[in-house]
């Protein structure tokens, strides 16, 4: 049993949880994730470890409510517990040193990017961070990201906050302004990571992306998370989740991730029929 120690809304659909998981807290590194099962009848879903506190024995998860499992989780609070949390899984991020890097986060991907950005900061890098979201209320971790970046840029699709446009527009502008990046770390929706990889490929900049394949065990046992990288089959949970963005077959993964679309909608519909699910108020 893994008790929830604290809970804080970050956006109308994104919530930060601190969970008691002492072994994981001790071992986790930037880029690792956990597999969580919320209730006995629940699904196993992967969530990135945003932070860890070995002293307190806790880990931080930042969760966007998108479907049944994440909505259920976001409806839970202090005193509740998750039935299973296993990790830390996946390879830790390759952290470059003393370089100029761009950290690009889209939507809840910013939560996954946050521990990496912090680690990059600790390794003497100069960091340009770009955070994008559909609209203002979906921008998360602005102050946290600002604290570990040298420059922070924000974009919204609808222009409701800071720059109107996509993260790739901001990236292109920086490249046009002759910023010479040694590496780019991009985490967000697949189309966003694909677009970033296309831009950086043109400039020959090493680009790390984190692939959100559908997972079950997260330990290399089912092969459900397989992705094509450089034409060969990889298991995102054990060979990744980060890969060279220039070698990933994004289109294939985008299609594969639709495998259970109708089931997901069915689960979500049933959940929303019997539970009141409300977007949460956030004081920013």
């Amino acid at each position: 049993m893994f008790p929830i120690l604290s809970k804080e809304p970050l956006s109308p659909t994104i919530t930060r949880f601190v969970i008691y998981a002492p072994y994981i807290a001790k071992k986790r590194q930037a880029g690792n994730f956990v597999i969580v099962r919320v209730i006995e009848t629940g699904e196993r879903i992967p969530l990135t470890i945003a932070e860890g506190d070995p002293e307190e024995g806790s880990i931080t998860l930042i969760v966007q409510a998108v479907g049944k499992t994440t909505k259920l989780l976001c409806s839970m609070g202090v005193g509740d517990h998750l039935v299973d949390v296993v990790g830390p899984l996946g390879n830790p991020t390759e952290i470059v040193r003393d370089s100029v890097v761009a950290c690009i986060g889209g939507g809840v991907g910013t939560a996954e990017l946050y521990p990496i950005t912090r680690a990059l900061r600790e390794h003497g890098n100069k960091i340009y961070t770009i955070i994008g979201a559909r609209s203002r209320d979906l921008i998360i971790l602005e102050s946290e990201m600002s604290a570990c970046s040298d420059y922070l840029f924000l974009t919204t699709d609808d222009g409701s906050y800071k720059r109107k446009g996509l993260v790739t527009h901001q990236l292109k502008d920086l490249l046009d302004a002759q910023v010479e990046f040694d590496a780019v770390y991009a985490i967000g929706p697949l189309p966003m990571m694909k677009a970033v990889s296309q831009v950086t490929q043109h400039y020959g900049i090493k680009t790390y992306v984190s692939l959100n394949a559908v997972m079950v065990d997260g330990t290399g046992m089912c092969g459900g998370c397989r992705v094509s990288v450089n034409g060969t089959m990889k298991f995102a949970c054990v060979d990744g989740p980060e890969f060279d963005g220039h070698k990933v077959d994004f289109d294939e993964l985008i299609k594969r991730n639709r495998t259970y679309g109708d089931f997901e909608r069915e689960s979500d519909r049933r959940y929303c029929e019997t539970h009141t699910w409300e977007r949460q108020e956030v004081v920013k």
Partner: peptide
Amino acid sequence: ESASGVYSANE
């Protein structure tokens, strides 16, 4: 093999 509808027996 990457298609939707292909499983390992394990999965």
